[in-house]
Design a binder for these strands. Structure first.
Lengths: 217, 217
DNA sequence: AATATTTTTTAGACTAATCTAAAATTTATA
DNA sequence: TATAAATTTTAGATTAGTCTAAAAAATATT
């Protein structure tokens, strides 16, 4: 069984690699884990010995099929717990992340399946991120950052990046939630800021914000 | 903040001391933690330095007021999670203990207060054990082991000892649950086995079992 | 009361995860 | 392309929690 630390490193590698699409450098990983490169190298060797990642010295790491499955199991737990916290315990979405970071490490397959059932088998978490199913299948939605679309775009918000609690508070304030309709009225060339219609209200968004809102046309 | 290991040792000391009523010997503690006396001594020194227990070399340890408060916070979390698992996720009471052992170490005051509210501020857990309130107050019920009462006794089951999963499965089979009425019809002098009326059904109980059923008259 | 037994503590070693400093390797630049 | 700069790895040390073996102290027994 993986230690808590191993699980956290593996999850970080999984996310940094965009779900296994690209390889991850030692320094990136060290920064993501708020640790030093030497520590990352040590852990890389451990995970590599367990065949959860493949590793070529000096050229970064990739998750193996086995590693991806383990990482997805953790992601599944994280997102189910976030859903529980918001839906059942009335947490706001900016509060859930750090608690879910702890809850995701509880080991009990029975618990997570029961929780899934209790929540009604949700497909996405409160940020709009897809929840892997019990077999580790992840449905990736076709979506794009709101900073990538042109003036005139119409669609719905599919997800928001959940990296920063202050961002989430702001998104909550302007009620930019997954599921809502959004239309780009105007795009300012100079700073790429947007004027959008969100839930029938006119809102101005800086690029700093719009790149964290994911939409589907 | 306490480490997971420190929390587990402190909780063990709290339980072994009957909630602070008596002192705990190094060997008792080592056995409860499935470890060696030398390890227990090391941890005793650490907890003592943090003033969670008081310690006189060779004569065992006692929890301090501070230590008792910390231990009760862990007990509160454990029992609330057990209640959640049984009431909301349909776990049977023999399954909950080991999962609750993990969940009790999640650090988030907000989480536990929300959970308490979600569960409707329960007073006791599924085994009948009282749940400390948010201020660390524990209501101890006047109760006695069923092996201590005389033939003719009538009362209700207030709790069952939750030490052993097989015992709990057996108690579940004969439906000896907290809250049920119980009457002792006859007590066999030789082996102290009992013939009881439980939920209007006649059942025979060995002393091995009866001592794990707590009743109030 | 002297000795044997049991319990507890100390001393020293081991593993996991971390660190700093130095060495090795790759990448960038002049 | 030789050298400088950046990145990565290695080497050796540190901390938390554990262990075994030996020493110290308390308790039990003759």
């Amino acid at each position: 069984m993986l230690s808590l630390t191993e699980e956290n490193y593996l999850k970080a590698i999984y996310h940094l690699s965009d779900g296994g699409a690209k390889s991850v450098l030692t320094n990136e990983l060290a920064e993501a884990m708020s640790t030093k490169a030497a520590s990352a190298t040590d852990m890389i060797k451990k995970l590599s010995a367990k065949e959860l990642i493949s590793y070529e010295k000096y050229y970064g790491v990739n998750v193996t099929a086995k590693g991806k499955a383990e990482a997805l199991a953790v992601v599944r737990k994280h997102r189910l717990w976030e859903t529980f916290l918001v839906q059942k315990l009335a947490f706001t979405w900016d509060e859930v992340h750090e608690v879910a970071e702890q809850l995701e490490h509880i080991h009990s397959p029975r618990l997570i399946d029961k929780l899934d059932e209790f929540l009604g088998f949700p497909k996405v978490d409160p940020h709009g991120d897809p929840i892997p199913d019990g077999k580790g299948k992840l449905k990736v939605l076709p979506q794009v950052g709101l900073d990538q679309v042109k003036a005139g775009f119409q669609g719905i918000i599919t997800a928001v990046k959940d990296s920063d609690s202050n961002l989430l508070k702001y998104l909550d304030k302007i009620s930019a939630k997954p599921g809502l309709k959004i239309k780009v009225i105007n795009k300012e060339e100079y700073d790429e800021s947007l004027e959008v219609l969100l839930d029938n209200k006119k809102v101005f968004l800086s690029k700093e914000v719009s790149k964290n809102i994911l939409v589907s046309g």
